[in-house]
Amino acid sequence: MTALFDPRDPAVRTDPYPIYRRLREADPVHQSHFGYWVLSRYADVDAVLRAPGVSSEFYRNQVWAERRGGLDSPLVRSVRNWMLMLDGPAHRRIRGVLGKVFTRGAVERLRPRVTAEADRLLDAMGDGEADLIESLALPLPVTVTCELLGLPTDNRVQCRQWTEQISRVIDPSITAADVAEMNRAETEFREYVTGELDRRRAAPTDDILSLLLHTEVDGVRLTDHEIIANVLFLFVAGHETTVNLVGNGVLALLRHPDQLQLLRENPELMPGAVEEITRYDAPVQIVSRLLDEEVVLDDAVLPAGAKVMLLFGAANRDPARYSHPESLDVTRTGIKTLAFSGGPHYCLGAALGKMETAVVLTKLLRRYGKMELSGEELRWRSNVSFRGLERLPLRLLR
Rank of each mutant, 00 (worst) to 15 (best):
F5K: 01
Y20M: 08
R22A: 14
R24E: 02
E25I: 10
E25V: 12
A26G: 03
Q31R: 15
F34Y: 14
L39V: 00
R41Y: 02
V54W: 07
Y59C: 09
W64G: 07
L71C: 05
P74A: 03
N81M: 15
L84S: 01
G88K: 05
G88I: 07
H91Y: 11
L98D: 10
K100D: 11
K100P: 08
V107Y: 08
R111Y: 11
R111T: 11
V114E: 15
D119E: 13
A124C: 13
E134I: 02
S135C: 12
L136I: 05
L138K: 04
E147N: 03
L149H: 01
L151M: 08
T153V: 13
T153D: 00
T163S: 13
Q165C: 03
V169R: 08
T175I: 11
A176M: 12
A176R: 10
D178E: 09
V179G: 03
T187E: 14
V193Y: 05
V193L: 10
T194V: 13
L197G: 07
R200S: 10
L209Y: 13
L212D: 05
H214G: 07
E216P: 04
D218T: 00
D218G: 02
V220E: 15
R221C: 09
L222D: 05
H225W: 13
H225Y: 14
I227D: 06
A229V: 09
L245E: 14
G247E: 08
N248H: 11
H256K: 03
P257V: 12
Q259W: 10
Q261F: 13
N266S: 15
N266P: 12
P267I: 01
P267V: 04
L269W: 11
P271F: 12
G272S: 06
A273N: 02
E276N: 02
I277P: 02
P283T: 10
Q285H: 09
V301A: 04
P303V: 02
A306E: 07
M309W: 00
L310T: 11
D318K: 01
P319D: 03
A320Q: 12
L328A: 01
T331E: 12
R332T: 07
T333D: 06
A339C: 02
F340E: 01
G343Y: 01
C347G: 07
L361Q: 00
E372S: 13
G375R: 08
L378D: 09
V384A: 07
S385P: 02
G388S: 01
R391K: 12
R391P: 10
L392R: 09
R398T: 15
